[in-house]
Amino acid sequence: MTDPGVRDMTYMEQVVHWLRQRLDRDPPLAAPRQLNEVLRVLAIWRSRLIADAYVRQHGAKIMQGPFAGMDYVTTATEGALTPRLIGTYESELHPHIAAFAAQGLDCVIDVGCAEGYYAVGLARLMPDVTVYAYDIQAKARAACAELAAKNGVSERVIIGEEFTPDGFEAFKDRRCLVLVDIEGAEDDLLRPDLSPSLAHMPLIVETHDVYRRGVLERLVERFSPTHDILRLDPQAKTLPLPDFLKGAGHLDQLLAVWEFRIQATPWLVMTPKG
């Protein structure tokens, strides 16, 4: 849906154009994989409509969760917007974020920060913490900087482009939480052999076997000698929905909290031993 001829269309027009092209094929939509692709595209379209409805009702402000009250964006640079606005996004991590926030940290390293959901949210949640936010996409870095300014934490959100496997050594004397969500490249980044300081840092890592087969097992093997490791799998969402969705159809309620995952991407919450 990014062909030059359709760039000036609205998003809905792009979806219709994309779908019509597939329906015109001979035979049209013949394989289950093709039908799954169509279902995903239509679900994303519907999710975006729900996000627009949320913004009309509540503005771009996060409703609940650890980042409740944060002024947010109306367009996500990566992934689903609606669950971030509602506050259900990655709710499996909420108690662990609260526990780490209570430990007297002085910095956070957020690699794969996108538009700054965690970078800015954690800066608001922990007023004494400096967040070092990294993303290789220029659009994401610009959006993160804008979000930090909107929430009055620009001086404590330091934005960078690339973070290297030995980069943790610059933080070896800091009380630092590490967050990583980089679509499989966690396999290359998290190397205790190159950054021994990782042995003393708590980490929250989203693993992506969907892109890098076996990465979860390799990270567990690398960090088991130094960390207690808890695996978290995505669960059904149980936090309240906005009032305007409480009377909506069940499909819209499900799509409101859907996080666009192609398949399960378990998190590893890793706490240094002792």
Rank of each mutant, 00 (worst) to 15 (best):
M1I: 04
T2P: 02
D3V: 15
P4C: 02
R7C: 08
M9P: 04
T10L: 05
Q14C: 13
Q21S: 06
L23D: 09
P27M: 05
L39C: 06
R46H: 12
I50A: 05
I50Q: 02
I50M: 03
A51I: 05
R56Y: 03
Q57F: 07
M63Q: 13
G65F: 00
P66A: 02
F67Q: 04
F67K: 00
A68R: 13
G69E: 07
M70S: 07
D71E: 12
D71P: 02
T74A: 09
T74L: 05
T77S: 14
E78D: 12
G79M: 01
T82Y: 00
T82S: 09
P83Q: 08
T88V: 11
Y89V: 00
Y89L: 05
S91K: 05
E92S: 08
E92C: 06
E92D: 12
L93G: 03
H96D: 12
H96N: 04
I97M: 09
A98D: 15
F100D: 03
A101R: 06
L105T: 07
V108A: 15
I109K: 07
G112F: 07
A114E: 07
E115W: 04
E115Y: 05
A119V: 15
V120E: 06
G121P: 08
A123I: 15
R124Q: 10
V131W: 06
Y132I: 04
D135G: 03
A142H: 10
A143P: 01
E146D: 11
A149S: 10
K150M: 15
G152H: 03
R156N: 02
R156K: 11
I158Y: 00
G160W: 12
E161Q: 13
F163P: 03
F163Y: 14
P165L: 09
P165Y: 14
A170H: 13
A170S: 11
R175N: 15
C176D: 06
L177G: 10
V178Y: 13
L179Y: 04
L179P: 06
E183W: 05
A185G: 04
D187L: 13
D187G: 03
D188E: 14
L189H: 01
L190R: 09
L190N: 12
R191Y: 15
P192C: 08
D193P: 11
L194I: 09
L194H: 13
S195P: 07
H200F: 14
M201F: 00
L203G: 12
V205D: 11
V205H: 12
V205I: 08
V205F: 14
E206Q: 12
T207H: 05
H208W: 11
D209K: 01
V210P: 01
V210F: 10
Y211V: 02
Y211D: 05
R212S: 07
R212A: 08
R213W: 15
G214P: 07
L216W: 00
L216I: 14
F223L: 08
F223R: 02
P225W: 08
H227R: 04
I229R: 02
D233R: 12
D233E: 15
D233L: 09
P234S: 07
L239Q: 12
L241W: 02
L241H: 05
P242K: 09
G247H: 09
G247Y: 00
A248W: 08
H250P: 12
H250C: 10
D252R: 04
Q253L: 06
Q253Y: 02
W258Y: 13
W258H: 09
E259S: 02
Q263A: 13
P266I: 11
L268S: 03
T271W: 15
P272H: 04
P272A: 14
